[in-house]
């Protein structure tokens, strides 16, 4: 039997066209051996949640540099929950002030990565925290 592959989605919610970071991350996930679905900019939380379910991903990585993360990230988490898909891990990254971290953790964001984080750190986090087979 082949080994389970980790499937991840990289998405940019809201009105923010700064996608270099998201693209770098998509590439880095690919190089880590994951299957990466990249959905591009200007996505609503509803589009992201629907796509994540259609693609059966294990992880959704949200990138936001516009300052709307406190509104957009928790929305994705609650929409996934609404659709019975709360086993999908959601992480976030971008320009996110330290004082917002706890609020996002409380809303169900499992990890936050800000500028300066090495790609290895993120890949290692995924490899140790996301287990595709153990999901329901």
């Amino acid at each position: 039997m082949a080994k389970r592959k980790i499937r991840v989605m990289v998405a940019k919610p809201g009105l923010d066209g700064h996608d270099r970071g998201a693209r770098v991350l998509a590439r880095c996930f690919r190089d880590a051996g994951f299957e990466v679905i990249y959905t591009g900019c200007h996505q609503t939380p509803a589009m992201i949640a629907a796509s994540a379910i259609q693609e059966d991903v294990d992880l959704v990585g949200l990138s936001c540099l516009s300052g709307a993360h406190r509104y957009l990230f928790p929305q994705v988490v609650s929409l996934l929950k609404e659709k019975g898909a709360d086993d999908i891990t959601v992480i976030g990254g971008g320009i996110i002030p330290q004082q917002d971290f706890q609020k996002l953790y409380d809303a169900g964001i499992k990890a936050i990565f800000v500028p300066g984080t090495t790609l290895d750190t993120i890949v290692n986090w995924v490899n140790s925290n996301v287990k595709p087979v153990e999901r329901k």
């Binding site: 998509a26 690919r30 990466v36």
Partner: peptide, 24 residues
């Protein structure tokens, strides 16, 4: 690496919320 970037869906995102459309 065995990894892949799946980027076709990006062109079809306007249909992502339509329950009559299933993109995989």
């Amino acid at each position: 690496t065995g990894g892949a970037t799946l980027g076709d869906r990006i062109r079809m995102q306007r249909h992502s919320e339509d329950i009559g459309v299933f993109i995989r």
